[in-house]
Design a protein around this nucleic acid. Structure first.
Length: 309
DNA sequence: ACCCAGGACTGAT
DNA sequence: ATCAGTCATGGG
């Protein structure tokens, strides 16, 4: 049986701007593979698709894929002008933003995003992508184009044995994922209800899940629920914050850095965080500059606020 | 061999 | 409330 080829979706990026490569390699999504011709094979709202960019045009093909779904996924409805305008006058942040100004925060499926970040602890980004692919192959529903598998649903993961999960190289994260899946299917946490909750309540709800701490909760809030104030602090962000805003002081505690980040970077702090994260990971000069900043002068007075207001 | 990775959980202070 | 130990696994 033959199907009509799905229509090609085309979106103008003239107003909004987008750097597809930077966005898809910035450690927020783990289901995209870049072809040699520059096209990206991946998933939007659980539907397989192909996406590519020619300058100020974004194109996508995939069955049952809509213009609105693609625009929403890439956050093309966000007020980027306001977001940039809300940033503080901060030379470091400006540098990070200028490194990849087309970096955008995605709006991904909450369940898959939750799973990805439960699996993310003490893993490198490439390994998280490998785990995502393994889970699809081992437990996901096979789709029409062969060798293509949907991400396993919560019931499917809860029905799996912990041994099956460990075969996906999850290690100690297998139990976390297994328990979290049960919590979701038993209604202990409703991923749908989180959608309309105030961010703080949404965060508290996510924290009830096994394997979800502050960092993972903030990643899910930011990369799936569009809560742009959520500010995940992983080892990279912690390092760059410490070096740039606390002069390398090892004694500053994480809670204080989170507090500083919220007030300093403002209502779209999550976006600032993503620019900083991508910058320190991808720009070799970032580490040099950050180290130089940290070497300037260690703090003397522990009570003082180091980061410039 | 050694250190690190988009951390969270547990049990002892 | 804070804090070190521990948890698998693969890359560099």
């Amino acid at each position: 049986m033959t199907r009509a080829a799905p229509p090609q979706i085309s979106l103008s990026l003239a107003r909004h701007g987008l750097d597809l490569d930077a966005t898809l390699t910035s450690g927020q999504s783990f289901c995209w593979n870049r072809h040699a011709d520059g096209r990206w094979r991946g998933w939007i709202d659980g539907r397989p698709c192909l996406v590519w960019q020619h300058g100020e045009v974004l194109r996508a093909v995939g069955s049952e894929l809509t213009h609105e779904a693609v625009a929403r996924y890439f956050g093309l409805d966000l007020p980027m002008r306001d977001i940039f305008a809300s940033f503080p006058a901060d030379p470091w942040l400006e540098r990070a933003r200028d490194f990849a100004p087309g970096l955008r925060i995605l709006r991904q499926d909450p369940w898959e995003t939750l799973c990805n970040f439960i699996c993310s602890s003490l893993k490198q980004i490439v390994q998280i992508a490998q785990i995502n692919a393994s889970l699809r192959r081992a437990l996901g529903e096979p789709l029409d184009p062969p060798n293509l598998y949907a991400f396993p649903t919560a019931p499917r993961l809860a029905r799996a044995t912990e041994a099956q999960l460990r075969e996906c190289r999850l290690g100690f994260r297998a139990r976390h994922l297994f328990v979290a899946a049960r919590q979701v299917i038993q209604g202990e946490v409703s991923l749908e209800k989180i959608e309309t909750m105030p961010t703080e309540e949404a965060r508290e709800t996510l924290l009830r899940l096994q394997g979800v701490g502050e960092k993972v909760a903030n990643c899910v809030l930011l990369f799936a629920y569009g809560r742009l104030e959520a500010f995940p602090i992983d080892v990279w962000v912690e390092r760059v914050l410490r070096q740039l805003y606390f002069k390398g002081s090892k004694r500053v505690k994480l809670a204080r850095m989170a507090d500083f980040s919220r007030t300093h970077f403002g209502p779209y702090g999550g976006y600032a965080q993503q620019f900083l994260f991508h910058w320190v990971r991808k720009d070799p000069r970032a580490l040099v500059l950050a180290n130089a900043a940290a070497a300037k002068k260690p703090v003397e007075k522990p009570g003082e606020v180091e980061g410039q207001a």
